[in-house]
Amino acid sequence: MSVKEKLKKVLIEDLNLEDVEPEEIEDDMALFGDGLGLDSLDAVELVVIVQKHFGVEIKDMEEGRPAFQSVNTLAQYIEQRLA
């Protein structure tokens, strides 16, 4: 399973997005606001999800902000840290 596919799966499971299917999350869809509709508490959960499922620690939110734009940017961030 690719990082993007795993990300979509854990986003749905850990954020309880029961009404969303993985294939409905487009790679460049905005995670917050009008896209997937996540909010500030989800941002904190995202930090936990990334560390728990990928072993990548996001130490400050300024660093995380650009990564949290979409599945594409977040997957890229994770892959860079794992490289």
Partner: peptide, 10 residues
């Protein structure tokens, strides 16, 4: 299992 930094706020 994962330490305090991975404890879910929810």
């Amino acid at each position: 299992d994962f330490g305090y930094s991975c404890s879910s706020p929810t």
